[in-house]
Design a protein around this nucleic acid. Sequence first.
RNA 1: GCUCCGGUAGUGUAGUCCGGCCAAUCAUGCCGGCCUUUCGAGCCGGCGACUCGGGUUCGAAUCCCGACCGGAGCACCA
Length: 504
Amino acid sequence: MSLEEWQRRLEAIAPELIAELSEHKEPAKGLPPLEGVEGGVVMRFAPNPNGPPTLGSARGIIVNSEYVKKYGGRFLLRFDDTDPVKKRPMPEAYRWYIEDCEWLGAKPDQIIVASDRMPYYYQAAEELILAGGAYVCSCEQAAFKELKDKGIFCPHRDQSPEEAMSLWAKMLSGELQEGQAVLRVRTDMSHKDPAIRDWAAFRIVTAPHPMVGSKYRAWPLLDFESAVEDHLLGTTHILRGKDLADSERRQRYVYDYLGWIYPKVVHWGRIKIHQFGSFSTSKLRKAIEAGEYCGWNDPRVPTVRAMECRGIRPEALRKFMVDLGVGETDISISMDSIYAENRRLVDPAANRYFFVWDPVKLQIEGDVPEVAKAPLHPTSDRGFREIPAGNEVLVCNNDLEGLKPGDRIRLKDLCNIEFVSMEPLKARYVGTEVESSKGKKMKIIHWAPVNGLPIRVMGPEKTDEGIGEAGIASELGKVVQFERYGFAKINCLGEPIVACFAHR
RNA sequence: GCUCCGGUAGUGUAGUCCGGCCAAUCAUGCCGGCCUUUCGAGCCGGCGACUCGGGUUCGAAUCCCGACCGGAGCACCA
């Protein structure tokens, strides 16, 4: 039977199969779909404000807000600042998160600060106690762990709700001291996963909290605070790191006791960045306090502010994070993709300038034009910059490597020269026509006027000092391209002008 | 020790739920060419992967079992 015959027979027997075959599976674009999104979603990003957002935070901010954009609903920024000591919040960091969210194009619809909402947690704790879901445990931490590992009940576990309630009151009143008691959720001491067994919901911390001082002495732990908040806020979907993968199974006990409905959860793996290695906010904070970096926006640091400072566009970050998706695999990414994305955005907009690093003076005999006219952009017609030239200019020292007297090169947008001597550095003018340089495939280098502006370019790997043309001073806050060097953002017009390097 | 999760090119990613459109997608990277008064941009071409072993099946990246590798949790941290 021929192919055509088969085709015809199939059409006769099962036309729906043909239709299915010809229907192409659309390649999935963007983020994977979420379940149960009818009526919109409520999603939150919940950091501890103990430093500014990092690239890791950016992923959380962007992906959460992207889903809200996709399905409609509300994007919440919630500060889980319930540890006044070990993860001590920084008062400035609250503002930093809000600013960076907005900069990333993810302005929160609501901002929640956990330390402001303690009464809710106390109320939930009491409901939980009354429902028989929690007890006050005064075991020593290590002793409890031992029991827990063996799956044995601790002596406090059989408390009645009334007993638990009166002990809870003592936690709040100050009759019980720090370390003497915790409120525990009654789960299942024989649960096969020890991580789930009777976890602590509240502990006593007497140190003042940076935001609310000594107003409270019983502080909820993350799993409890977050469980209550997600219910209160009507969170529909939670995006959570794999490190918190146990939270759902723990928090479900609270939800079940109180008759709440648990949100849908998606996990994602850890993210590491080649160029920055592994970093943590607390590690960064230490290094910055020690003066190793000049602040949270130092170009060597993986914070969102540092990206902004370097001229990375929020759109580049968004595109990148959306492309990463939400896999549970741990990933190790490279900044290269972000740079490529950003270059696409920034290249059409950035004016071109000459910046000469490691400058050396070059004397040129002859009729060198007094001023060069160079386009601000190679392809879009944005006019010209005028650069004073003359018989003395500056060039990069490393462009001289391998050159000898008699060699000819072209100074871009100026003229062609022939080297007369390398030490001292002298050359002579041999014409201005581009054509003669082109035909001979002459090397083309850039240069700077001797009375140019001192420039410092700080980058993630190194800092370069040199001289640039005067027009750079009119680009404050903008990204420019230093020809044959890379893109940088002009951040400060002092002496020197300070720019941050973005990428090549 | 107990528990959970994951393994597609150098790096990410699509496909895995519902096995045949997959001799496996896209991006980035790398290599070569063209173009360009920048080592930038653009254009063209190329490189490169289903962790391994069994099983089920006419057919497996996709389902099952095992191994190996990697990550995470078992805090009075978030």
